[in-house]
Amino acid sequence: MREKASTFAGEPEPSGPNRRTVLVGAVGAGVAGTALAGVGVGLAAPTTAPPAPQETLPVTLTVNGVRRSAPVDPRASLLDTLRDQWGLTGPKKGCDQGACGACTMLLDGTRVLSCISLAVLHDGQEITTVEGLVAKGEMHPVQRAFAERDGFQCGFCTSGQVTSAVGLLKENPRPSRAEISELMSGNLCRCAAYSNIVDAVADAARGER
């Protein structure tokens, strides 16, 4: 397994003028927000009135290798932002509460649940969805293994399973079968294709060695 002090360290230090104050008009900084930043940004100098909610905030993400910016409602989950606003419907909404794994994405290469995070938290970060796993028209080895092993029935959980398995193999390139079951336990399958899913992940691990 990798040695690391923490899974992500946030983004690298911003260069040039502090992006935080420019974009978010942080706490009491008194900096006017950008045109996109909507109401109330940065205008709450040392007054007693709490700062007003922003209607939208500019969010820049690199999604499947393409950098995109858009105004985003601060309340929007990462999942809703990518599905509804940016048209990436590969990640699914199963439970919307962190319990099923259908919304799994890679955030700076690490698997996370996009339904229980907000898009604004990820400004500047890199996202890979299942759509981004195909490279040069070739399926990812994990996708191929799922197809070969019938690692699904209805397919609703599959994009999350596949993305999660890609994340798992980065964390642990040589999992045992027991480890695969444990480390894929965040992805539920209502069709109970579990044994084929474990076979697929085991195949992919073997192939990737």
């Binding site: 978010v24 942080a26 709490p50």
Partner: peptide, 29 residues
């Protein structure tokens, strides 16, 4: 709706919490 703020230091974060009695920290979410 809420105001989203992204302080760059612990001091700024503490000031933001102090200045708004309705403010809450968000970490992993």
């Amino acid at each position: 709706p809420f105001h989203y703020s992204r302080p760059g230091s612990v001091g700024e974060a503490v000031r933001a919490l102090g200045a708004d009695p309705g403010a809450e920290v968000i970490a992993g979410g």
